[in-house]
Design a protein around this nucleic acid. Sequence first.
DNA 1: AGTTAATATGTAACATGTTAGATGTTATTA
DNA 2: TAATAACATCTAACATGTTACATATTAACT
Lengths: 234, 234
Amino acid sequence: MQLGSGGKSFREQKVVAVTRKDQVYTILRQAIISSQLAPGEAIRKELVALQLGVSRTPVSDAINRLADEGLVEIYPQTGTFVARLRLDKIETAQFVRIALETAAIRRAAERSTADIVQRLRDNLDRQRKAADSRDFEGFYALDEELHDMICDAAGLVGLREIAAKERSQIDRVRRLLLHYETRMVETLKEHQAIVDAIADNSVERAAAAMEEHISKMGKMLLQLQTKRPELFAD
Amino acid sequence: MQLGSGGKSFREQKVVAVTRKDQVYTILRQAIISSQLAPGEAIRKELVALQLGVSRTPVSDAINRLADEGLVEIYPQTGTFVARLRLDKIETAQFVRIALETAAIRRAAERSTADIVQRLRDNLDRQRKAADSRDFEGFYALDEELHDMICDAAGLVGLREIAAKERSQIDRVRRLLLHYETRMVETLKEHQAIVDAIADNSVERAAAAMEEHISKMGKMLLQLQTKRPELFAD
DNA sequence: AGTTAATATGTAACATGTTAGATGTTATTA
DNA sequence: TAATAACATCTAACATGTTACATATTAACT
């Protein structure tokens, strides 16, 4: 597998493992979220195994995890396919995301420190630069980072991972939408409002800004469905 | 595997599959949640495979899923263990559960129909009977069913499954706590308040009742830690 | 005796062979 | 021609063999 030497020089503290299946999982997930693997496309395990230079086992393991996450669909004895977008599933994911992230930001706003606010603002600066240079990928990564930072700021162990997992479905859509121009500028403004509210320790304002921000996508989504119907199921 | 003939008489509509790994997953999960497999206990895959009459593959697959769910911990090349309870993880799970289920009950209270309310009350009647006869297992199952019904009443596809998954950690604790005396009676009262609020379409009251209900466990948890410290990590 | 190095052991991770079932195609029959 | 049955093909599911690594145990040495 062409991903670094694999030779661990010394015993790492607690890095629980970078197994092959983890690496395959990361690669496939990335490929799906970025639409490099398109919704509906078949995934041939054996081919993937061959391309990555591993056996079928870690590929199967990775795909099982992606199936739990709802990013692929496995039809027994038939095939594995990148999951198509489903409005009803996305609606649920939106709901979960709003519930989780508004709750998280309330806690974050309560307990925000100067240090945390500073790092949030740093992130926004970088977002501005990315937006100016129309760097979609960079902007997207910073967007994720911001949401992760807010989850962390809530001070709950493992919350970031849970939130990130529930975001999977939505991330695919978000990524696609970013390419439709003005969304990046709007998103930046919304992020600005969110960070300002946290800086002011305004719990309710922060929650409202977050809900507003997440909800915006629902409307854009319908546009996407008319423009790219082939990405959707049914 | 001693779980039914396995002969599918005809082509089921969409029952996506009851594969061996699904069955093993269900069995192990059940065993963990019921503390039949105690926190910290080692799980020997080969033994499990032998006992269930399957190969190591479906057992590994099932255990991988349980690891994602946080119910077991896999130490590579070393062993697999039932996860010990961790206060910080449980705190996060509580937070997620409150965020998710209060949001769900708000929707449920908005859109509740006479039919749904009727079924909620039926469930409460059965809970009362179970409590009277000190049927812990039965009560526990009805408790789960009630929460599932409320999720369903929110009318969002797949929400129940997400909520159930996030409850995993807490379910283990809840199950242990039920055996400590008066909790069953209290729980029943709290459930009553929740259902009443839904029946009245009182969104805020329902959410408050649910939050109250879920929060109660936090306090009981500390008692459990003093009584059964061996169940906890660190 | 205490410390370090060699070794034994057990397990998950990984590789690969085999089976069963879903689906598409072709042949057969009315 | 249309319906149906036999068959070919492909894939996930399952089984099992192999490897690498973490850990415990023992041995060697100061």
